[in-house]
């Protein structure tokens, strides 16, 4: 069962003796439902990674960094987890995120999606969905609403969208919320 897109899974392991980009490794690319599960079944769950590590799933040809030409005008829907949620929620939310991406859950707005990242951090893990153009308000909001619904977050929970250009300058301003 072929997917609409070919996806690349990346792994980042923090090693401060190396440049950031040298810590980022492409694991594998896949473009079928069956290969997705083969990959998923052979890698560590996100909750088992050590702090400082990331997984990223991006469309083939887009590197999981702000600097990539297909990311630099974009931003991310960010889900921040409390420390205690690593064991109760992280793996389920990350899997739901992956299924939204490979299943093209955002309908025609799926073309705006670049990828998703899970950051494993001692102060609290984060999951984000990256889109390519922060100014495409209709697409960004559609993706945010659908994503929140798929994660099963309560209507009271609020997730924010931050433009990479703002994040790069250390501003944590939410451009949109759903």
């Amino acid at each position: 069962h072929s997917l609409e897109n070919r996806w690349a899974l990346w792994f980042f392991k923090n090693d401060s003796s190396q440049a950031w980009q040298d810590n980022l490794h492409l694991i594998i690319k896949f473009d079928t439902v069956e290969d997705f599960w083969a990959v998923y079944g052979h890698i560590q769950l996100a909750s088992k990674l050590s702090s400082g590590c990331d997984y990223a799933l991006f469309k083939d040809g887009i590197r999981p960094m702000w600097e990539d030409s297909r990311n630099k005008r974009g931003g991310r829907w960010l889900v921040s987890l409390a420390k205690h949620q690593r064991h109760s929620k992280l793996d389920r939310l990350w899997l739901e995120t992956l299924l939204c991406l490979i299943g093209e859950s955002f309908e025609e707005h799926s073309q705006e999606v670049c990828g998703a990242v899970v950051n494993i951090r001692t102060k609290g893990d984060k999951i984000s969905v990256w889109t390519r153009e922060a100014e495409n308000q209709a697409s960004v909001l559609h993706i945010g609403h659908v994503y929140k619904q798929h994660l099963g977050l309560s209507t009271k929970a609020i997730i924010g969208y931050q433009a990479h250009a703002d994040t790069a300058t250390k501003s944590t301003r939410n451009k949109f919320v759903v």
Binding site: H1, E4, E34, W37, L99, I102, G103, E104, S105
Partner: peptide, 20 residues
């Protein structure tokens, strides 16, 4: 058309042995 798959469809493949 676009290949869209809902989560239930995708999850059905999770533990399916690979066909060779």
């Amino acid at each position: 058309g676009k290949k869209q798959y809902d989560r239930e469809f995708l999850l059905d493949f999770q533990f399916m042995p690979a066909c060779i």
